[in-house]
Design a protein around this nucleic acid. Structure first.
Lengths: 227, 227
DNA sequence: CAATAATGCGAGCTATTCTCAGTTTTCGGT
DNA sequence: ACCGAAAACTGAGAATAGCTCGCATTATTG
């Protein structure tokens, strides 16, 4: 069980829960997940260890609660990108710039928190599920924009999901562990450029309609003679 | 300290270390990281808990050792993709097919192990560093192929790194937590297709040389009037 | 065949998570 | 205002898991 065993009903207990989460966030970020004890969290929150365990069944649940809060805030930020897009109908390039900038901000705003939630602590199945769910939602919104911006091309839903997953991987890798030999802004620019090319309407070859790619086995390729 | 405190010198101790790692791999995969105790690992390996701690300074070190072994094997697989490419000089599409297939195989061959190392267990800074290092190596190899396959375009090193990070994110998300409403092979096909378009030589517009993209602030975009 | 080094052992020390029986506070009803 | 019940809080300590340390056993060297 990773959800609170008891829902706080009174104002007092809601403040207790808030204090516990605040303390947990601070101590987790300062000392890391493993080196933070639940007793220290309770002490810092000004409550007894018993109170903590009344609302959080175990230490992981504290982390899950923080992660869900962060995930919700992140989803909110990204949703605003698409709200803006719905109003202004930007070009693909401008949309990607806004989207990448937003995701980048989520990584750089509170890197310690992001690193804590995504790297340092064990990922419970529930957390992973929540994350994938958020991913799907963003992909869905992006798919809508793609349908607006281009006429044909491959399944927009699939392209959008790939883009969301890809951008997340790229920015996570770049912003949390910046390669020493590259500058960050250039990296972001390149990512925008790359996705623009990947998602733009493919310019049809003048010689005829582009053929659909043959299905190919995705496993060890032999490079036999190409035909 | 996460590396063995003592290097095994005699044959006997090398077998001990191997037995411990084998037991750790089995128990971690079966019961998860948190629910596996070091005493159980030692018991299963047929050695005493003291022997375990002679070669692994703490529980995390067991995981790091498993991860490094897995990472080395993975890097080996991917290196073979580029070895094949060096010999056969495949088209971009065929290279991508082989690369994606290889990375997919790494995820599907032993999903439990992959999930353990990448999702379930805490990622130590050392592990993350090793992972990024492998990423850089693969990107470097891919950059070489890009230089062969296309004349101009943006910095191949940057494009390659983005591709490696992106592919990893896409396949990780898709293969470990398959979206219920999509088939996996189609997903892989779409990824290959997407990266082909993203990395291919951009077809120059007939009206003139493509202009370099203006540098744009990557942060919250206002969508002022476009000019 | 010593002497020395390497390896193996496991009872128990230490630290941390989590429980539970009892106390205090809040709140609706009269 | 007062009461009873429910909610909230407490903290000593039970349970458990990571890890240590002194000593026994096995291998290597000269």
């Amino acid at each position: 069980m990773l959800t609170p065993r008891k829902q706080p009903r009174q104002q007092r207990s809601r403040e207790t829960v808030a204090a516990i989460l605040e303390a947990a966030a601070q101590l987790f970020q300062r000392h890391g997940y493993a080196d933070t004890t639940t007793n220290k969290i309770a002490e810092r929150a000004g409550v007894s260890i018993g109170s903590l365990y009344q609302y959080f069944p175990n230490k992981d649940a504290l982390l899950v609660a923080l992660a869900e809060r962060h995930l919700a805030q992140s989803a909110e930020q990204v949703a605003q990108v698409f709200a803006r897009a719905a109003e202004h109908r930007p070009s693909l390039h401008d949309l990607l710039t806004d989207l990448v900038g937003c995701v980048a901000a989520l990584h750089t705003d509170r890197p310690a928190l992001h690193r804590l939630l995504f790297d340092q602590a064990p990922r419970t199945p529930g957390l992973v599920a929540r994350f994938r769910q958020a991913e799907q939602q963003i992909a869905h919104a992006l798919a809508g924009e793609l349908r607006r911006l281009r006429a044909g091309g491959p399944d927009p839903g699939l392209s959008a999901l790939l883009a969301v997953q890809g951008i997340e991987g790229q920015l996570h890798g770049t912003l949390l562990d910046p390669p020493s030999d590259r500058d960050t802004t250039g990296h972001l620019q390149a990512a925008i450029r790359l996705w623009h090319q990947a998602l733009a309407e493919p310019t049809p070859l003048p010689s005829g309609p582009s053929r659909a790619p043959r299905a190919q086995p995705a496993r060890p390729q032999r490079y036999g003679r190409r035909r």
